[in-house]
Structure formats: structure tokens, C-alpha cells
Computed example of a mutant assay.
Amino acid sequence: MTTPPTGQEPDYRFTLANERTYLAYLRTSLACYAGGLSAVQFLDLGPDRIVAKIMGAILVCAGLVTTAGAFRRWQLNQAAMREGARLPVTRLPLMLGATIAVVGLLGLLFSLWR
């Protein structure tokens, strides 16, 4: 059983904006899952396809981290709004951007190398 939230109920517009952000992160994590599974299934970057498997694993792991991080971010933001505190800083967008850039660069390099 969860404890009841403390503080004041935030303006519903902020609550809905927080929820939209959470859903946007979930869409991004779904895209990472789809991209990772597609990389493993369809990329032919060498005889044993190890590069495609690595790219796929990285993207699926990024999707898992994004899913968990999005929920945690939603919780922390909701709690901060109830208390009237500042919203916490997150590194989730930086992690996502860096991961996607690295996987894209890896794919580009191995596509040119072939």
C-alpha cells in the first residue's frame, strides 16, 4: 500500500504536462526497442553480424533505461510540484542523445567500411 501524497495538489495543467512528458519518453523507448530489434534482424554489417547485434543490444538497453528513467522522472516531478519545490534535473535526454548518436555513428562507420 502506498502512502498518500503530501503537499498541495498541483494545477491540473502541470500534472497533465508531466504526464505528456512521461508518455513522450515511453514513445522514445518504444522507438529504441523497435530500432534495436530491427538492427539485429535486418542490418548486414559483416559475416557474423556482430556489429548489428551490438547496435541492437545498445538500443534495447537504452529503451529499458528510458522506460525506467521516465517513470522515476514522472514521480520526482509530481512530488516536487506537490511540495512547491524546483523540478529535479535529469540526465535522461543527454543519455538518449549520446546513445543514439553513438549507435548512428557506429552504423555509419561500418556501412562505409564494408
Results as ranks from 00 to 15, higher is better:
residue 2 T to P: 13
residue 2 T to K: 08
residue 2 T to M: 05
residue 3 T to N: 08
residue 3 T to W: 01
residue 3 T to A: 06
residue 4 P to F: 04
residue 4 P to I: 11
residue 5 P to M: 02
residue 5 P to D: 09
residue 7 G to R: 01
residue 8 Q to Y: 03
residue 9 E to C: 03
residue 11 D to H: 10
residue 11 D to E: 12
residue 11 D to A: 08
residue 11 D to Y: 05
residue 13 R to Y: 09
residue 14 F to M: 09
residue 15 T to F: 01
residue 15 T to K: 04
residue 16 L to K: 10
residue 16 L to W: 05
residue 17 A to E: 13
residue 17 A to P: 03
residue 17 A to Y: 02
residue 20 R to N: 08
residue 21 T to D: 14
residue 22 Y to H: 12
residue 22 Y to N: 08
residue 24 A to M: 11
residue 25 Y to V: 02
residue 25 Y to E: 04
residue 26 L to F: 03
residue 26 L to D: 10
residue 27 R to F: 04
residue 27 R to T: 11
residue 27 R to P: 00
residue 28 T to N: 05
residue 29 S to V: 03
residue 29 S to D: 09
residue 31 A to C: 09
residue 31 A to H: 04
residue 33 Y to S: 10
residue 34 A to C: 07
residue 35 G to S: 14
residue 35 G to N: 07
residue 36 G to C: 02
residue 36 G to Q: 02
residue 36 G to R: 03
residue 37 L to N: 07
residue 38 S to W: 05
residue 39 A to M: 03
residue 40 V to R: 13
residue 42 F to T: 09
residue 43 L to W: 11
residue 43 L to M: 14
residue 44 D to Y: 09
residue 44 D to C: 06
residue 45 L to V: 06
residue 46 G to E: 04
residue 47 P to N: 12
residue 47 P to G: 09
residue 48 D to P: 02
residue 48 D to M: 03
residue 49 R to V: 01
residue 49 R to E: 09
residue 49 R to N: 14
residue 53 K to R: 12
residue 54 I to A: 11
residue 55 M to N: 14
residue 56 G to D: 07
residue 58 I to A: 11
residue 58 I to D: 07
residue 58 I to Q: 07
residue 59 L to T: 10
residue 61 C to Y: 04
residue 61 C to I: 13
residue 61 C to K: 12
residue 62 A to H: 05
residue 63 G to V: 03
residue 63 G to L: 01
residue 64 L to M: 12
residue 65 V to G: 07
residue 66 T to D: 06
residue 66 T to E: 09
residue 66 T to V: 07
residue 67 T to W: 02
residue 67 T to D: 05
residue 68 A to T: 11
residue 68 A to W: 04
residue 68 A to H: 11
residue 70 A to P: 01
residue 71 F to W: 10
residue 71 F to G: 13
residue 71 F to P: 00
residue 71 F to T: 00
residue 71 F to V: 00
residue 72 R to Y: 01
residue 74 W to D: 07
residue 74 W to P: 01
residue 74 W to C: 06
residue 76 L to C: 06
residue 76 L to I: 01
residue 76 L to A: 15
residue 79 A to G: 04
residue 80 A to C: 05
residue 81 M to T: 05
residue 81 M to R: 14
residue 81 M to L: 15
residue 82 R to F: 00
residue 83 E to Q: 14
residue 84 G to K: 01
residue 84 G to D: 06
residue 85 A to S: 12
residue 85 A to R: 12
residue 86 R to F: 08
residue 86 R to H: 12
residue 87 L to C: 04
residue 87 L to Y: 00
residue 89 V to W: 03
residue 90 T to A: 01
residue 90 T to L: 00
residue 91 R to A: 14
residue 92 L to F: 00
residue 94 L to N: 09
residue 95 M to D: 03
residue 95 M to Q: 12
residue 95 M to V: 14
residue 95 M to N: 06
residue 96 L to Q: 15
residue 97 G to M: 05
residue 99 T to L: 02
residue 99 T to K: 00
residue 100 I to A: 06
residue 100 I to P: 00
residue 100 I to W: 08
residue 103 V to H: 03
residue 103 V to D: 06
residue 104 G to V: 12
residue 104 G to L: 08
residue 106 L to W: 13
residue 106 L to C: 13
residue 107 G to C: 11
residue 109 L to I: 15
residue 110 F to R: 13
residue 111 S to I: 08
residue 112 L to Q: 14
